[in-house]
Amino acid sequence: MNAFRLVGDLCHLAAIVLLLLKIWKSRSVAGLSGKSQILFGLVFVTRYLDLVTNFVSPYNTIMKVFFLSSSIATVYLIYTKFKATYDGNHDTFRMEFLLIPCALLAIVVNHEFSPMEILWTFSIYLEAVAILPQLFMISKTGEAETITSHYLFALGSYRGLYIMNWLYRYYYENNFDVIAVVAGIVQTVLYCDFFYLYITKVLQGKKLQLPA
């Protein structure tokens, strides 16, 4: 474990907590893409299948359990409890356009052609693009609530910090996973446009409005 990865995990945790707080306090899922949350749930389910078979550390297990349960809870809140506030008309990104390419790529490009390894690879590829429905929805509505933009900033920062973690592990632990690194770079690059808007607008106290 290194500081980059620890802070990255805490950013990821903060993002998920921020999202749950937004939903619970505003009693609304307005502006949230249920599709992205479904994809994140799928990412955790396919990545943490080794939750009970491969013990790494108490920290690792606790975080996996929290990420799994919170992502499933978020999907539940969006599609059942606060369904009335779900803006389905703007959450129209076709998930199959992400699921099928990621599945095919995971079958072709992986470290080992075994079910667990292919599912892990699928989860890595899917995580890289899982935010697209959410970013697409914001581009359609033209704006995002401030707390939603904090959520996105924390979520985008987490994988950016993981890139630093991979650099660190490459130089100091001679540990390198090209699949995770390439997907992590793609994932972080997808947030760049949002990062620019967040820093130039939200941090100036303005609401996140996309140029019409």
């Binding site: 995990d9 080794d50 790494v56 996996k64 990420f67 080992e112 075994s114 996973d177």
Partner: peptide, 10 residues
């Protein structure tokens, strides 16, 4: 092979 064995990240 070490990549598949060492899955210690979240």
């Amino acid at each position: 092979k070490e990549n598949t064995a060492r899955k210690d990240e979240l």
